[in-house]
Computed example of a mutant assay.
Amino acid sequence: MEFITSYDGTTLAFRTLGDGPPLLCLPGGPGRAAEYLGDLGGLGAHRTLILPDTRGTGASGTPADPDTYRVDRLVADVEALRRHLGLERVDLLGHSAGGSLAMLYAAAHPDRLSSLTLVDPSFAGVGLPSDTGVEQVIASRASEPWHAEAVEAHRHMTTATSFAEAAPYRLAFEPLMYGRWDAAARAHAAADPAQRALPVSEHFYRDYTPDTAQLLASLGELACPVLLLVGEVDLWPTAEAAAGAASLFPAVTLAVQPGAGHYPWLDDPRAFTATVEGFLVRAR
């Protein structure tokens, strides 16, 4: 584990994993330590993964001001890490809520990106829906033995007013977030509570109102290539929502991984790694 001091004196932790050109990977959750990313399905065999813990999560420090957990203010932490790493331009990957952060970083610092990879990103950071067609995706999995319980938990999750209120239903809901509810998926989901910092989750989008028009204009001028990779049965975002958002970017590759959920590197590591590494090679 390595540490840097960000703009406001908060200590940020990150670790590096793998070998090859660097790839800066922003975790989601929001508020989940980067540990859940693992080695992204073996991507570390091709890239040096730089895995920061968002402030307030994992080994990173707790800031004096909890408002700095907000997604737009986290952009400054990403820039602080880029500077520390000495990278003039960076290949950036964001997963889930980390995808929102990655898009905001791209809008603020487009000249610092060599490529942008968005893996099942939330579009909340740019003010677009992530759940278009979600009921159809849920219905498509009706034959699964866990389906009824997961649907009931999903109802509670979507009507909860806070992450803390939703927490008791999360594990029952989790099968809907994976393409296969096997032992690896169950272990990954069970690790969530210990890896999640609820204060970060609660503040991530609190009082944040995106300037959608300006953000879409900025992303529409993004010069670097973009990979938008989503699981076929993910709920947040759905493949339909991702297809609608793909037109934001002038140089985009949209990849829908068959049978995958919100964590496509777990559902089919080989397919995930081939897609991402193939894109990164072409982006050079």
Score class of each variant (00 low, 15 high):
21 P>I: 06
43 L>A: 10
30 P>R: 11
21 P>E: 13
17 L>D: 08
36 Y>N: 08
25 C>L: 13
35 E>M: 14
31 G>R: 00
12 L>P: 00
22 P>L: 10
18 G>F: 00
30 P>K: 11
42 G>S: 14
46 H>R: 02
19 D>K: 15
24 L>W: 06
33 A>I: 08
48 T>N: 10
20 G>A: 06
36 Y>M: 06
30 P>V: 15
47 R>Q: 11
38 G>P: 08
48 T>W: 03
26 L>P: 03
26 L>T: 01
44 G>N: 12
32 R>S: 08
31 G>K: 00
50 I>G: 01
47 R>V: 07
44 G>Y: 03
25 C>K: 05
47 R>E: 06
28 G>N: 09
46 H>M: 03
40 L>H: 08
51 L>F: 13
25 C>F: 10
32 R>I: 13
17 L>P: 05
13 A>W: 07
38 G>Y: 01
26 L>D: 00
30 P>C: 15
37 L>H: 03
29 G>H: 00
28 G>Q: 03
47 R>M: 12
18 G>N: 06
35 E>T: 15
47 R>H: 12
25 C>V: 12
39 D>L: 14
27 P>T: 04
32 R>E: 01
44 G>A: 15
36 Y>I: 12
33 A>V: 09
25 C>D: 03
23 L>R: 02
12 L>Y: 02
29 G>T: 06
40 L>Y: 03
18 G>I: 01
49 L>P: 03
13 A>N: 04
37 L>A: 02
14 F>S: 09
17 L>F: 10
38 G>A: 10
13 A>H: 07
31 G>V: 04
23 L>V: 11
32 R>H: 13
33 A>G: 08
44 G>E: 05
15 R>P: 09
21 P>S: 12
46 H>D: 01
42 G>C: 15
44 G>K: 06
45 A>K: 15
19 D>P: 12
12 L>A: 05
21 P>R: 11
33 A>E: 12
20 G>S: 04
14 F>I: 12
